[in-house]
Structures are given as structure tokens and as C-alpha cells.
Nucleic acid binder design. Sequence first.
DNA 1: CTGAAAGCGCTTACAG
DNA 2: CTGAAAGCGCTTACAG
Lengths: 348, 348
Amino acid sequence: MPTIRQVAECAGVSIATVSRVINNSSAVTDEIREKVLDAVNRCGYVPNVGRRTTSFLALVYAGPFSLGSPYDSALVEGMVQAMDGTDLDLVILNPMRDKRPDETYTQFFLRKGVRGVILRSTVEGRPMCRQIADEKFPAIVLGDHFEHPTLPFVYADSTDPSRQAVEHLLTLGHRRIAFASNEFEDGDHVDRFTAYSKALEDHDIEVDRSLVYHVPARKPSGAQLLRTMMSSTHPPTAVFVTDPPVAVGLINESRNMDMEIPHDLSVVGFDDRDARNYVYPLMTAVCQDARQLGYDAFAGLARSIDAGAGSKTGDCVSTCWLEINNSTGQPPVESLRILPDGTRLMVG
Amino acid sequence: MPTIRQVAECAGVSIATVSRVINNSSAVTDEIREKVLDAVNRCGYVPNVGRRTTSFLALVYAGPFSLGSPYDSALVEGMVQAMDGTDLDLVILNPMRDKRPDETYTQFFLRKGVRGVILRSTVEGRPMCRQIADEKFPAIVLGDHFEHPTLPFVYADSTDPSRQAVEHLLTLGHRRIAFASNEFEDGDHVDRFTAYSKALEDHDIEVDRSLVYHVPARKPSGAQLLRTMMSSTHPPTAVFVTDPPVAVGLINESRNMDMEIPHDLSVVGFDDRDARNYVYPLMTAVCQDARQLGYDAFAGLARSIDAGAGSKTGDCVSTCWLEINNSTGQPPVESLRILPDGTRLMVG
DNA sequence: CTGAAAGCGCTTACAG
DNA sequence: CTGAAAGCGCTTACAG
């Protein structure tokens, strides 16, 4: 366990100055402050109380808190499981609440006794993630991935299975395939859209922007989405829905509209847990294991902290997979086809 | 913030002895150890590091961890929300993992820097809850309630609405009403069974033990339960299912069996969140708000800690309510009735 | 087994 | 604004 003395030596200042920086005293030059905080992160320093050895990893929401979603609760479940293999405990922090505007993230985390942070991010959260990474505080990002020179990411790559999903629909005979994605663009959703476009292009089908929807990741959006799609002039015969609650909401709403899935509409959903097994009909879905992601994030961060500062953690990319169930089938025989020249054809 | 000095004075020993007790040194008399730990809890002592003021409330699972269930994740969501109103952070602790067998719970929690614990309990967890209460460490119990002189409980009373639920079924004309409860008996489930029995007795119907089921609170149990019930010699015409996942699993399975709810079977479920709105048909259910329970537990414990040791927190009892939706209706006209003397009657 | 005292990590008036 | 030094909370050999 490094002490304030080692940090002082490492930064070339007195222990008093280190203490001042940690406690965010105003009487420190910006230059020295930066030098000391850098030394803090290089040494992996945390305030010590006697021989008390407990330290914490923090789950930090970069953006509004939403611990209640099945995805987020699966993440936490995985983290708690990973906890058992370490001597670290999990604390839930809300920087929105009590990070003082004039303190850095490193100072904030030190104040809390935290040795590393799991950043649950979306696009809105990226600035916070970047700032924490710039301070070189130990961190790992979950739920989003983007280009960054030092930040490690934990995510499941959904590109390939997303493409397989669309190809599955194409093979069944579908040509008008809608795509429903999150209102917020994060790395994962971008991947899925890329895969969707690619699969269509490979079959010489142009992406029809009127079939691309962005909706909030909640069940009622799924219900609304279905009504919107089906009341359009040229409804699709299939849809790829990239958020679990939206897919579930859509499938459930179909019964209120006296539609039969997959007879009237094929649905490929997304599942990060087990929702696909609890809708009727069982949902064909691109699947990832959110519990595993939470586990990997905690375990990976713990490992990199044990290994000491400076050791780079790589990304932890697991795989998604396509599971074909009963919500996909051939398009309705009376389906409307639109030829390249715009001619509408009723087939069947 | 009380220091080790105050605790020493309070217990009538030296600060060295207090420190030894906190760090569980073997060189302390049992008698003095107890006296000191008592003083620790009376003073509300937590180890202090300089002017660092952070302190933690811990979520502790008395029993195997299961943070992933909708109920538990709603609890955590509520706690995180309550966090915002305080200067306390939430840490998740697993005593199974690293409580040393020779240390008391108070010692364990002090070592972690924890000022109070939210005990998520079931019947199995009661001994741990009782022990923590005996040590007088600040605690509040969630998810179970039982007789105890000092422990405060947070729960929603489901007795009245459970009775209304059964009466609702009786009014619709049902006479063979099954009851499905958790495999583990906790205070909440006992309440619901009592209400069920009472409602039947009030209508001069004897409780038929062959209609009372105990199953694990998971969706597959609901599917299995439905098959078991419907393949019995005298299937019920209605069922009151007191666990949300079981109710959902049962309703979903009905479609695989070509049954129609409520035409073939009326179902009153239980909901602690929003599941009732996402099954088809919309589920009639006794409802409680698990998010609110988590919120109340955190806020209540925080308040009682602020108020200082010795101040007794009362139980926080919120109310459940019955919500009538589309999964209940009149019994099938061809339903079998059994008269008091045992005669079977096909009605309709 | 217990306390007085030395010592460690950290903080904070005080001097420059 | 920075460091040397006094001081606080806590721990731990040392003496009895």
C-alpha cells in the first residue's frame, strides 16, 4: 500500500503539498496540483487508515442513474459475483450528487476511498469517461464503446450475429425489413446498424430511411412502434429491434392489435438476459449475456489494479449470438412488394 | 464524529483497548470486548481518516446473493434514489465472503467503514438479522418481517388486498381457488396465506390443502405449476399466485397449452413492479412498489443514524393494493362443482 | 490481559 | 504558494 510519502517523493514535493492536493486546498499551483495527481495515479494511492485494507471499486453512472433496467441489474449481479473472487467491495457512486465542481475526478474518488471505477456509459457519458481517462484514474467502460487511446472497454460484439439476423430474415424471403434502434447512439447500436445496412447491401437492397426508427428503450415504445410501422403506407414484413424492452413491448402489443407473429410480422429482437424465453411466441433474438459483462468489468478492473499502475488492460470483447426461435417466419403471402422502379405488387 | 477516545471513555478503558477490540486482537477479555463493542454502537463510532467524512450504508444479503431479480433490482434502484438526499453512499457487502469467523458483525462492518446496514432477508436470513440486532448495530430489514423487539422493518402489508383479491374471485363465482406461494416462508407470504384462508372461511369454504402449492419464485415454476394444476383430477377455476415471476410464467405457459385466460382459468398475480402491464392478458394483481421499499429502507436508516444512537426507528409499513385487469373473469360454465357432501356437479 | 508511550498516516496552523 | 513541525486518530511493541 503506497502512502502519501511515496506520492510526495514521486512528485518531488512535501507530504503537506500532497495532502493539500488530495483535499483540494485552493492554495496550490495548478501545475503542482496536476503533477501530484499524476503521481497519485501512477502510485495507485488510496488514503490508508491504520492497517485497514478495505478498498472499493465504484460503479459510476456517467449520465442519469437507471439501475432498475434488466440490463443494468444484470450488470450489477455480475459485478457482485465477481466481487467474491477479490478483496474489493462494490460501492455505487453518483458524481452528479456530490462531486464538487472544483475538484477533479481523481480527488473525488480518493475522497470516497475508491481505487477504480466501472463507468456505465452512453453517448452522453463519454465526456466524463474521457476526462477520467485523461486523469489516468483506473477505469473501465461498460455499455458503450468508442475510440480511445487508453480506456479499456467491456462489451459484446453484436456485429456478426446482427448481420446473421438480417440474413436470416432475407433467407426467409423478407425484403422490407425495418430497423429499430435506441434514441441514443452508442457504440453497440452503431455496430448493429452497420451490420443491418451491410446485410441489405449484400443483397442489393438499399437502406430505406423510412424503415429506420429510433425509440426510447422502454416497453411502451415497442407498442407504439408497432402501431406506427403497421399504419404506414408500406408496412415492413419484418423488423430487427435492437433493444430488449422494445422488442418485448412490440410482441406483446401485437396481440392487442389482433396480429399474429410471425404470420403477420417477423420480429428479431435483442436480448441481454432471458426475456426471449418469456414472451409468446418465443423470440428470435441476437443475445448477449449482461451478467457476464458486469462480471468481466469488475474482474478486469480488479486485475489491472492488482497488477499495478501503468499496466494496460486490453478491451474485453465477448460475443453475441443469434438464437432462432418462433417470432420469425416467411413473409405473409399477400405481402406488398415494391419493385426497384417503384411499382407496387401484391404477391400471393 | 465520535473518536476512539470517546468510545474509550464511554467504556471505561484505554484507547489501546478500544483499538484492539475493533481490530479483533485475541488479547482481550470477552467481557471487555463486549463492553467496548456496546460503547461503539452507543456512540455510533466509525473509524475516521483525517477530515474525510464519507460514510457508507451497506446492502447486506442475509442468505445467498440474488441481486438480479426484478424485485431486488427495484430495491437497489430505490436505495440509489434515496442516496441523493443524504451524504451516505451505498456499498454492497457479502458477509459470506469475508467476515472472519471470529469477528462480530459490528467488527466486520467497522472494518468496512459502514455505519448502518440494510438487511435483505428471507427466513434463512433471520438468524443473521437477529445477531446483528443483538449487537445493536444500526440495521433495517427488507423483504421479510417477523417479531423482534428492536429491529425495524420496511415492508408493504399485503394482507388486506390479498383478501380483496380472493373475494374478487369469489364474487365472480369461483369456488375452487388455488393458492401458490413461495417455497420459502417469509412474513409477507404468511400474510398472504392468512388472507386467503380468511376470505375462504368467511364464505364457508374450507381450505383444500391439495390446492395450496409452494414453488420457487421463478418463471419456469409458473409454467410447471399450471401443468400440474390443470392435470389434477379437480382442477381449480382460479388461482392466486403470490410471486410475480411465477404469475408471469404461468400466464405465458397458458398459450402453449391452448388455454385462454381468463376463460379457462382466472389468475390473480402479484406484482412488485410493472410486470402486470407486460403480460397478455393484462394481469389482475396485488401490487406493491419495490422501488419505494428500497427508498424507504435507505432513507429510514439514514435518518435514524443522523438522529444518533439509541433513537428507535419504527417499522415503515406501506400498503399494497389490488389492481383488477383482464386475467380474471367468471369461471367456465362447464366448471365442476363439488358439494359439501362430496357430490360432483357439472354446472352449465 | 491491559495501559502508557512511541510511532505511522495524514492534516493543518505557522513561518517564510 | 510551499515546507517544517505540531497535532489528531489510530495502532502496536513494550512493560507490568
